[in-house]
Amino acid sequence: MEIAIKKKIMAAVTCEARKVEGVPVFYAKDEEEKEVMAVTLCRVMEAVAHDMGNGVYIIVKH
């Protein structure tokens, strides 16, 4: 049987320290920078940014 990981959290982007652990975290100084970083990460990783609703974007490879 072939086992493969189909979805993976590649990184997280947030403005708040210590909110995310276990994946590469990118800290932004404000909302604007957070968006720019998320877009860049998405395009580079060919992934999608999802809004966790608590100020954290997770970059997920689908």
Partner: peptide, 19 residues
Amino acid sequence: GANLFVEDVQIMNLGLPEV
């Protein structure tokens, strides 16, 4: 918020404002 709905069916979560 970030959740996209078609009528009352949830499709996916999209974070980026530009998207």
